[in-house]
Design a protein around this nucleic acid. Structure first.
Lengths: 157, 157
DNA sequence: TAAATCTAATTGCATATGCAACTAAAATTT
DNA sequence: AAATTTTAGTTGCATATGCAATTAGATTTA
């Protein structure tokens, strides 16, 4: 009966999402390296969010990116050292530190986006738009089921 | 034109796979904790593989699980300390160490599988089998596209 | 208003992971 | 057969991440 259960699991989405994610991750890193883009995946995610929510509080940024606030703090420190972002203390609330994308960060992000777009059109080769739409819908439903009780962040990569 | 490219990216699968993966990961950890199953996601993956490939070399195990051999070494050491696996030096090849699932490992794995199965049937609630099949096919194609040149491992979670 | 509570950020400790360097053993080359 | 190369595993260094504890500032309560 163990093998029976394993069989059921293998027919579920659980293994496939993990495999695909991992493959995409590696692919992205390779593409960035071979195109001379000095960013990690997480850093692109963060820069993209900042480009649309510049000056957001670390707190909120952690929530948006679905990341522990401690993890976010260290991520931002790393990115600050690389000159991708800067921080300012909030004038209204002494606890809050706001995060901004720098000019350098904008330039690097701008160079990264077309690489990502190219990569994804490669990766989705031979897959119809209908299939992609269905897949996105399924993934959305899964996420909704998973986070039925918890509040969830909306932006990620 | 930057926002245009961002828009295209958001319509690709890249963001969705990542989000779903992260949500599933957290969900799995929670389910394991609330069911008293002392395993991480990676440890279940490894035990499942061992239950079907008992005595496999670390080398091969790293390949199968798509993991760096250094990472695998440390993972196995952790699992050995927890009594989930044991190791033996290969008799044929002095370099090789073979990994075995222990009785304790088998028992814990057996208790984990139904939890996983239950979780996934919950997670896939409201999604038709056809939709799931299409999604799996799409994910398979993506993986094939990504790993077109590289050799790729077949088992994962 | 003073005390208690809550919140934002940071730091310590833990796990997981990758690359590079290293060791030891096997396989190949010369 | 000896030297070179390859392979399996380990360890050092780096990043990323989470939970728990801490600090400092804001808010609520008594």
């Amino acid at each position: 009966m163990l093998s029976n259960k394993i069989f059921e699991l293998d027919k579920s989405l659980l293994p496939w999402v993990g495999r695909t994610m991992k493959a995409l991750d590696y692919h992205l890193i390779e593409h960035f390296e071979s195109n001379g883009i000095p960013l990690t995946k997480v850093q692109v995610i963060t820069l993209r969010i900042l480009s649309r929510n510049n000056g957001v509080a670390q707190n909120k940024l952690a929530f948006i990116t679905n990341r522990d606030k401690a993890s976010l703090t260290r991520l931002i420190i790393t990115m600050e050292k690389k000159g991708l972002v800067s921080r300012e203390n909030s004038l209204e609330d002494g606890r809050v530190r706001r995060v901004f994308i720098t000019e350098k960060g904008k330039i690097i992000l701008d160079s990264a986006i077309p690489v990502l777009v190219d990569m994804m059109s490669d990766v989705q080769k031979g897959i119809s738009q209908e299939e992609i739409d269905i897949t996105i819908e399924v993934l959305k439903k899964i996420r909704a089921n998973v986070n039925a009780d918890e509040q969830m962040a909306s932006i990620n990569l």
